[in-house]
Design a binder for these strands. Structure first.
Length: 719
RNA sequence: GCGCGGUUAGCUCAGUUGGUAGAGCAUCCCCUUGACGUGGGGAGGGUCGUAGGUUCAAGUCCUACACCGCGCACCA
């Protein structure tokens, strides 16, 4: 057999990757139902399942996705080769708020219309068209990474099956008393005109003046004078001796922004004597802490700012002004009245913004739907959702890697408040609650004529929380659900531990009575070569698709794995990617050498165990793979890849092959044969071992291996 | 303020149950005309953040501190 011509030129990923992915897809082996039997003729039984964290349907592939795909594909391919019944389920996410705001932006740019101009139905049509158009883009980009996803099980968060699952989940949670409607203080985004959950708030630093105002005999501080109109309670710590002469409930007449008012003294431990003067006034309608104080003492709560950020009549002459503009004018007026004690010009304040749309958050009291996280659940032995979430990890049923994130997870649970799940946007899963007069019904479908559905939709993380089982067919009792749930691993970035991982545990432990996954593997953020975040303004963004184009998907995958310990940020530079392309080429040339020197031989030509020197080589090879197995099983893919890299390049190529040149030239026929068999055999091992990490180049080489029976992706792992 | 990490060679990072410090890249020198220049051999370079402690022995365990990063909280 002559040396295949392709090995005479350097490895060219561009010429091979597309067709190889097609072969994989057409083989059907991404689907566990089509996987071949094991070499001993038995069926694959042990399951290995991963659900893909669904990228936004309207997004494009970035390095975070690329890292995630690399890790998950390695785990899936490794386990497939180890004989497991493997499935990796793809999907995309509607990303409700983000997608709707994107479409609204386009709408406004094109026709200067808002969603209210065109109405709910027309907007949804536009959103659907936009997502359909985008969907294929992200899917094709995911495929270019070599991801061995079972596309026959593709799910979209808003498709019919998932919609049904979401409705079912809501109704069940409502019936269990976990979902309730309440008038509580929520994070309101005046720009998007919707509520936002606590976890979606992003704090941004700003430098702003800090004002000290005279409030009767007291001095109070604030950065937000515009909220102060309704402040008629003055709060101090019960044991603050400076204010011992004031008693709880005492009334004090004083001059305030728009004239004389009567303030009431409240003694509450929420006032920290060490902060400022130790005295504060409260605005219960626009501050969570103030709201809680007001509730404790049963105080009046008055709205000062409306849903668009406009001051209400309580602001007197300032009513109708936007809070942004009103602030300076209010301060001027207070100055004129001699009520400004002093101004600290450079105060660092953390502004709450909506991390999805960027609007400034204004706390408001609104009637919304909530999930009560501390309510006892009868069908779970009186435990609360918080208890269930904590137990999932404490029991070890779900292990988080790296494990220090478990502490962060507990910390989050301890601080968790009821989760506001209703959103005033249109794109998403509509809340399955129906109203007719004073009647309310909670059910998936309309109860009939005259019933009106709640106009709100659900927080996108509500449906995402169901993802491990909604993708497997829940609420129907499917075979997939039986076979593959709980899933083996959930792999994602540590930045969505709370958003998503915790919500999945919440949903699964309640609805399924089991954890959603046995392992959580958290990868780091991908940064540039100097450790900076990639951003447009720094101009340091690396596009994974450009890199695939230049160096091949295998090189990109390896660059995101090597040196990336779990949970550590990944520092990526183009140099590193180039380096791994060199490695792909090295494997290519190793193959060329081995095939050239073993022509006419196959694995079936036997293996001589009596050669003592080669015995050591074989032991070393086995030890190498045992190390690789150990690392993969403990999610140290970085070390596994490094072990293989070292062995292939610096042991096998640099030493064993170099040494073989002498033997093949000068050795006896028997020595030659032994060495040839070792080289050929080891090349098989190497290709198998590297396949999960570098699937394209190894599969391409595999085509010319004399012992090939099927695709490398379903070959058995060396042992 | 509370919590979680990190600090090891110029850079990026490993370092498994404590036993004389490792890799890749970079630098310098040398080699190489049939596996591969996307190559090979070699060299220099670290008192492992600081100060204590435990131990026969500490990069590894304990305590404190410093600096860097992150999460939560804070709009009095």
């Amino acid at each position: 057999m002559a040396m295949p011509e392709k090995f005479l030129k350097p490895y060219d990923p561009k010429a091979t990757e597309g067709s190889i992915y097609k072969e994989w897809e057409e083989s059907g082996y991404f689907n566990p139902d089509n996987l071949p039997k094991l070499p001993d003729g038995s069926e694959r039984i042990a399951p290995f399942s991963i659900v893909l964290p669904p990228p936004n349907v309207t997004g494009t592939l970035h390095l975070g996705h690329a890292a995630m795909l690399a890790v998950e594909d390695i785990l899936v391919r490794y386990n497939r080769m180890r004989g497991k019944k493997t499935v990796w389920i793809p999907g995309t996410d509607s990303a409700a708020i983000a997608t709707q705001s994107k479409v609204e932006d386009i709408l406004y740019k094109e026709s200067k219309q808002t969603r209210h101009d065109i109405g709910r139905e027309a907007l949804m049509e536009r959103v659907d068209a936009f997502t359909k158009e985008s969907e294929s883009t992200i899917i094709n980009q995911v495929k270019r990474m070599g991801s061995s996803l079972d596309w026959s099980r593709y799910a979209y968060t808003l498709d019919d099956k998932r919609y049904k699952a979401v409705m079912e989940a809501f109704v069940r949670m409502y019936n269990a008393g976990l979902i309730y409607r309440g008038n509580r203080i929520v994070n309101w985004d005046p720009k998007m005109q919707t509520t936002v959950s606590d976890d979606e708030i992003e704090r941004k630093e700003e430098t702003t003046p800090f004002y000290y105002f005279k409030y009767g005999p007291f001095v109070i501080g604030t950065v937000r004078p515009e909220t102060k109109f309704g402040d008629k309670y003055v709060v101090m710590h019960p044991s603050d001796e400076r204010y011992a002469k004031y008693t709880h409930g005492q009334q004090i007449d004083l001059e305030w922004i728009n004239g004389p008012i009567t303030a009431t003294v409240i003694k509450d431990e929420a006032a920290d004597p060490a902060v400022g003067s130790g005295v504060m006034t409260i605005t219960p309608a626009h501050s969570l802490v103030d709201f809680e104080i007001a509730q404790r003492h049963n105080l009046d709560i008055e709205q000062v700012i409306d849903e668009r950020g406009i001051l209400l009549p309580i602001a007197g002459e300032f009513a109708g002004q936007h809070i942004k503009k009103a602030r300076a004018a209010i301060v001027e007026k207070l100055k004129a009245k001699g009520l400004v004690e002093k101004v600290d010009e450079k105060y660092t304040n953390n502004l709450a913004t909506n991390s999805r749309g960027g609007g400034l958050i204004e706390p408001q009291i609104k009637k919304q739907w909530f999930i009560g996280v501390t309510r006892p659940i009868a069908e779970r032995g009186g435990k609360s959702l918080k208890d269930l979430m904590r137990e999932a990890v404490e029991s070890g049923n779900t292990k988080i890697t790296p494990d220090h994130f478990e502490k962060i997870y507990y910390h989050w649970i301890d601080n968790l408040r009821d989760w506001c799940i209703s959103r005033q946007i249109w794109f998403g899963h509509r809340i399955p609650v129906w109203y007719k007069g004073d009647e309310t019904k909670v059910q998936a479908d309309s109860p009939g004529a005259g019933w009106e559905q709640d106009p709100d939709t659900l927080d996108t993380w509500f449906s995402s929380g169901l993802w491990t089982f909604s993708t497997l067919g829940w609420p129907e009792q499917t075979d997939d659900l039986k076979n593959f749930h709980p899933t083996a691993v959930l792999e994602t970035g540590y930045d969505i531990l709370f958003f998503w991982v915790a919500r999945m545990i919440l949903m699964s432990t309640f609805l399924m009575g089991e954890v959603p996954f046995k392992n959580v593997y958290l990868h780091g953020l991908v940064r540039d070569g100097q450790g900076r975040k990639m951003s447009k303004s720094l101009g340091n963004i690396i596009d994974p698709l450009d890199m695939i184009e230049k160096y091949g998907a295998d090189a990109v995958r390896l660059s995101l794995i090597m040196g990336a310990a779990p949970g550590n940020d990944i520092k990526l530079s183009e140099d590193r990617i180039r380096g791994y392309k060199h490695f792909a080429n090295k494997i290519w040339n190793v193959t060329r050498f081995v095939l050239e020197n073993t022509q006419g031989l196959t694995l079936e030509d036997g293996f001589d165990d009596r050669n003592e020197f080669d015995k050591e080589l074989r032991q070393e090879r086995r030890a190498t793979f045992e190390e690789v197995n150990k690392h993969i099983d403990t999610f140290r893919l970085d070390l596994a890849a490094d072990t293989l890299y070292q062995y292939v390049w610096h042991r096998f190529a640099d030493e064993i092959i170099e040494d073989s040149k002498r033997i093949l030239k000068e050795g006896s026929d028997e020595e030659k044969k032994r060495r040839q068999m070792f080289l050929l055999y080891t090349l098989h091992w190497i290709l198998k071992g590297l396949h999960p990490f570098m699937p394209f180049v190894t599969e391409e080489i595999w085509k010319d291996m004399p012992s090939r029976k099927d695709l490398l992706m379903v070959e058995t792992w060396p042992a």
